[in-house]
Design a protein around this nucleic acid. Structure first.
Length: 714
RNA sequence: GGACUCGUAGCUCAGUUGGUAGAGCGUUGCGUUUACAUCGCAAAUGUCAGAGGUUCGAGCCCUCUCGAGUCCACCA
């Protein structure tokens, strides 16, 4: 054996050996239990970061179940990540002094496609580099034709079942990114802004947004507010910047009589609460802010001004006209911003496709309550139910090109109010009403999560219905808790809806990887740890172990190079234990290890007490580690193995056995080899490379690689 | 306003169904005599945030208080 463990060579060698031998590709065997995990697909355009390295938890489960003898599938894929990817791509365009508006739809799509393809191979090799035993023969991309077909089918089914509707409601619109979002993509941040108290006819009312004044179509009070009862239903004259106008007073429960003066201006086109009030009271909508973030031509002299500039100008002008009673300069409130670019989200009226979620969330909640889906750690069950109970109808339209285009058409001849024609992807030949041929497709694409919400069954179905029937429902969905609502909940909803089965039986959630001080890693802070550099420097095994060791599942975990180095030292320890054993084997000569069955505790009484002791402790170890695996306590299993191998086996047993080995004690050598190999077997899911290498070094006659060795029993 | 997490060694964190407190880094010694300088061995260090309760026994279970943080919610 080399004096030094050369992890780079060894890791490369073993990965290609495993892959070539087909160990990652399970056989469909009805007499065996399947164990399935679908890899949460990384964005196809990006490099691996440390968060992705947390896939190691999945690899640990996969390797464990493979060793238990299950037909074990870990299915890889990549995500086109619609908006995320287009956003990154547009940043590249900006650097070149271009924008998306310099290209037509097809050109832009093609450019992003090429951009993504250029990066795809990287990601796959990076996953290989970390030892992930993924079945590459089944790889799927969210934009594969077969996947798109399935997504279209689901869309059509929702349409047929009346769970889909198109509505011109207020959309969370980012005027900078040029697209609408679902509620989840809005990030609320606390801001301090002026709260203006405006004079409105006989009232004084408070608003943070005087620039939307031009869109007011009523004034509202609470129905039981005695102060204003006499005004309800009446119309009154208001002095405004564009001249006087009339507003009626409505009474609505949505008004909080304790806030401000208890009177609010109602702007149905620019505020969600107001929009709903508008619906209840049949108020007209006046859109005074455009999709470009500037005031519309309904605002006279303010037309073309950006929202913030207009707000300041309007406030000044109102003040000049004596229409401001007073201003609270330091009003604290929450403002919705774009989760991506940070721009303030404008609620704007825009026709979009909505999924009626209640019929989807109810069965999802039921499945969780009935434990058809179990959460680890338990506490996330509550979070998931809370989420599912609070979902509003889901806007799945996005005004971007990078994604799956919505298969819905309208007939130009019948006009814009005509019915939508929804298909399973094929372009309709003519309008079913007027037989006209002038059909136009909705330019929008699906929210990425609409397609990735179908991932568990879609990935298996595109591989063949046989695979789907055998491996679905999948066993575990393991991912970061941060995408529980976005992804996990949607998968449960859509999985149950489309397949009538849960998409997975268990959800395992891990925390976010932080730096050594518990801070979020980011390029701007300069505290980013690159997993591939760590793997090259200290070995993939050390990195894997460092991510698991001493961290509790579901909690954020701190990571530092120190910790990875510590685990590298553990590989060094393992390597030298192996060298010690090998040296003694050669010195003592071929031993009769095979003839002694140490796994039976009854035959141990005749052994040297130290030998009996370490064998008994090995049994305990096997039991504890196995039990921890069953309880998803991977960190504890890792702790136990580390502790046993280093401080029990190396420090105590090996040290005290040196004298006996010196006297050619074959029994001791056999026990040592046996215990070490058992330890390596248990350690293999965590540190697959070094365990595989050492095992072949010290036990060359046994050609069975650890990856398919049967899990030890005590 | 609601939900959740956390508070344990100098730092960052583990701690199973309650049974004498652990790891890594750091610190301090020692060590190249049959594995281990890519280090190894050994040692020191704790009012387990605070108060009360349950218990033979509490870091762990219950209640409250204080402190840190995360997520959610259409407060103009």
């Amino acid at each position: 054996m080399d004096k030094v463990y050369k992890h780079q060579e060894v890791e490369k060698k073993w990965y290609s050996f495993w892959e070539k031998k087909g160990y990652f590709t399970p056989k469909i065997n009805p007499s065996k239990k399947p164990f399935t995990i679908i890899l949460p697909p990384p964005n196809a355009n990006a490099d691996l970061h440390l968060g992705h390295a947390m896939y190691v938890i999945e690899d640990i489960m996969i390797r464990y179940h493979r060793m238990l003898g299950s037909s074990t599938l870990w299915l890889p894929g990549t995500d086109h990540a619609g908006f995320e990817t287009q956003y990154v791509f547009e940043k590249h365009l900006t650097k070149e002094g271009k924008s998306r508006f310099d290209y037509n739809r097809e050109e832009l799509y093609k450019m992003i496609w090429d951009f993504v393809q250029n990066n795809r191979g990287n990601m796959e090799n990076q996953l290989r580099r970390l030892g992930f035993s993924l079945d590459w023969t089944k790889q799927v991309f969210t934009l594969d034709e077969k996947v798109i077909k399935i997504v279209y089918k689901t869309f059509k089914k929702l349409h047929n079942d009346g769970l889909l509707y198109r509505s011109k409601r207020l959309v969370n619109y980012c005027t900078k990114c040029g697209t609408g979002f679902s509620d989840l993509e809005v990030k609320y941040v606390e801001r301090i802004d002026p709260l203006y108290y405006l004079k409105y006819g006989p009232f004084i009312l408070a608003t943070t947004r005087p620039e939307t004044k031009f869109g007011d179509t009523a004034v509202a009070v609470h129905p039981s507010d005695k102060r204003y009862k006499k005004y309800v239903g009446k119309e009154f004259e208001v002095k405004g910047l564009l001249g006087d106008f009339k507003l009626s007073v409505i009474a609505d429960e949505a008004v909080d009589p304790k806030f401000g003066t208890g009177v609010v201006k109602v702007t149905p086109a620019h505020d969600v609460t107001d929009f709903e009030m508008g619906l209840r009271h049949k108020l007209p909508m006046k859109q005074v802010i455009g999709y470009n973030g500037r005031l519309t031509d309904l605002t006279g002299p303010y037309h073309g001004m950006k929202v913030m500039a207009a707000r300041i100008k309007v406030a000044e002008d109102l003040k000049a006209k004596g229409l401001i009673d007073h201003i609270n300069e330091k009003y604290t409130h929450n403002v919705g911003t774009c989760y991506k670019c940070g721009n303030v989200i404008e609620p704007l009226p825009l026709p979009q496709w909505y999924v009626r979620v209640k019929p989807l969330t109810d069965p999802a909640i039921k499945a969780i309550r009935e434990k058809s889906i179990v959460f680890t750690p338990k506490r996330f069950e509550k979070t998931a139910i809370q989420w599912l109970s609070n979902f509003h109808d889901w806007n799945i339209s996005r005004q971007i090109v990078w994604g799956i285009r919505i298969p819905a058409w309208q007939c130009i001849d019948c006009g814009i109010e005509s019915d939508w024609i929804v298909t399973e992807g094929n372009t309709p030949s003519s309008c079913p009403k007027c037989k006209g041929k002038n059909l136009i497709q909705d330019p929008d694409t699906f929210d990425t999560w609409f397609s990735s919400g179908q991932w568990p069954f879609a990935t298996l179905q595109v591989n063949s219905m046989k695979n789907y029937e055998y491996f679905y429902p999948t066993s575990v969905m393991e991912t970061g808790y941060d995408i529980l609502p976005w992804w996990v909940c949607r998968m449960i909803m859509l999985g149950l809806y489309v397949t009538n089965k849960v998409p997975f039986r268990r959800v395992v959630l891990h925390g976010l990887v932080r730096d050594s001080k518990g801070q979020k890693m980011s390029k701007s802070k300069g505290n980013v740890i690159n997993p591939l550099i760590m793997a090259d420097t200290y070995s993939a095994d050390a990195l894997r172990m460092a991510l698991i060791f001493g961290s509790a599942l579901g909690n954020d975990l701190p990571m530092s190079e120190d910790k990875i180095r510590a685990m590298r030292n553990f590989t060094n320890k393992l390597w030298n234990m192996a060298r010690f054993i090998k040296m003694n084997s050669e010195f003592i000569g071929k031993n009769n290890a095979e003839s002694i069955t140490f796994s039976q505790s009854s035959s141990r009484s005749k052994l040297h007490p130290d030998n009996k002791n370490i064998l008994d402790k090995t049994d305990e170890l096997i039991k504890s580690v196995t039990s921890d695996f069953e309880k998803y306590n991977f960190s504890r299993a890792a702790d136990l193995l580390y502790e046993f191998i280093w401080h029990e086996l190396a420090d105590k047993y090996i040290e005290s056995s040196k004298e006996r080995l010196h006297n050619n004690d074959k029994e001791t050598l056999s026990v040592l080899i046996y215990v070490f190999i058992q330890s390596l077997t248990l350690l293999h899911p965590f540190m697959p490379f070094i365990t595989e290498e050492i095992k072949t070094q010290i036990d060359p006659e046994n050609k069975m690689p650890l990856i398919i060795t049967l899990w030890p029993e005590a």
